[in-house]
């Protein structure tokens, strides 16, 4: 396999908790706790999980918006933040689109100025940057003559998100991180933006990291999917394999929570009870064992791993690997 365009090695982020007078030292929210994955060029890696699973923290770590506790991020084999790949250059290659389309735009800049700003930082002349901004507005479906001079509050949510996409593309990045980028949009508008993203990807040869809580949308967009639970990877694999033959009970439960869309075959049982536990004090062993229907003693004592690097479809579950001591441990090699 060729060098992945983006690679994350053993990424960890612990947010220390503010300590009171008698504060417990060492207590921390273990938001991301040992996450490794690689994205090949022109793939779309979907990241799914429930609130608190660490998917947004992972995105922010990737963009270096927050500093990791430990771990490395490599772009085309080079570690970010070194002499070979300074942060500024990395950010030209990797851009992000956020969920809140309004909060991510400067309310005092016209959308044209917002889009043209980043290229000037990277040495493009003002004139050229404006021309580029207009071309991009046109490309994301906003007629420049009508929209270039507008302010964010004069646009609808869908239009603003198109502006955010144009702005991210202004520095000609190779990778886009889309963090719940369509989640705040109405369904009829969401479909338009998803189609736009697919078109742009084909046209510009982009690589996407598509983070969402919406399993249907992730399935539609992604070539690979990564499922996170309480700061760790539960399962990773090619989209259809993961959706049709999941190997981690958590993935199966997530998929079992999808709505039926059939009034004659409504859901009759919730696949999981309760909420995800608190990431401040995650359960020992497998983090999912407290909600897992197949949990055995080994699950609460030993933490399962994904079982080797570079596997196409892997699950961090004792049942997925032979010889783990779980009675349902697979004979097959994952």
């Amino acid at each position: 396999m060729s060098t992945p365009i983006l690679e994350v090695v053993d990424l960890i982020k612990h947010f220390p908790l503010a300590t009171g007078l008698l504060g417990r030292a060492g207590s921390a929210v273990r938001a991301v706790d040992g996450v490794s994955f690689a994205v090949q060029e022109r793939e779309t890696l979907g990241i799914v999980g429930e609130s608190g699973c660490g998917k947004s923290t992972t995105a922010r770590l990737l963009m270096q918006l927050i500093v990791p506790t430990s771990g490395a991020i490599r772009y085309q084999g080079q570690t970010v933040g070194t002499k070979a790949l300074p942060l500024k250059e990395f950010r030209r290659q990797v851009q992000m689109v956020f969920q809140d389309s309004y909060a991510s735009l400067n309310p005092r800049l016209t959308v044209e100025d917002s889009i043209a700003f980043a290229p000037t930082v990277h040495g493009v002349s003002g004139d050229q940057a404006v021309r580029k901004a207009r071309a991009l507005l046109d490309r994301v479906g906003l007629e420049p003559a009508r929209f270039a001079g507008r302010y964010p509050h004069e646009l609808s949510g869908g239009q603003r998100q198109r502006v955010n996409i144009a702005r991210a593309l202004a520095v000609e990045p190779r990778v886009l991180l889309l963090d719940e980028a369509v989640s705040a949009l109405d369904k009829s508008v969401e479909a338009q933006v998803l189609n736009l993203l697919l078109d742009l990807k084909d046209e510009m040869g982009l690589t996407y990291l598509f983070i969402s809580h919406d399993l249907e949308v992730v399935r539609f967009m992604s070539t690979q999917v990564l499922v996170m639970y309480l700061g760790r990877i539960a399962e990773v694999g090619p989209t259809e394999a993961l959706y049709t033959a999941s190997r981690h009970p958590y993935t199966t439960a997530l998929l079992g929570s999808l709505l039926s869309m059939d009034p004659d075959n409504r859901r009759t049982q919730a696949p999981l009870a309760g909420d995800p536990p608190n990431p401040i004090d995650p359960p020992p062993g497998c983090r999912f064992h407290t909600r897992c229907a197949y949990a055995e003693p080994v699950c609460s004592t030993r933490e399962p791993d994904l079982g080797g690097v570079g596997l196409a479809h892997a699950a961090a579950c004792h049942m997925a690997h032979p010889g783990t001591g779980h009675s349902r441990a697979a004979g097959r090699v994952a």
Partner: peptide
């Protein structure tokens, strides 16, 4: 417009 079930690669959603 609702993304539901799988998609053949290259497909677009009706909008």
């Amino acid at each position: 417009t609702r993304a539901h079930g799988g998609r053949l690669s290259g497909n677009r959603l009706p909008t």
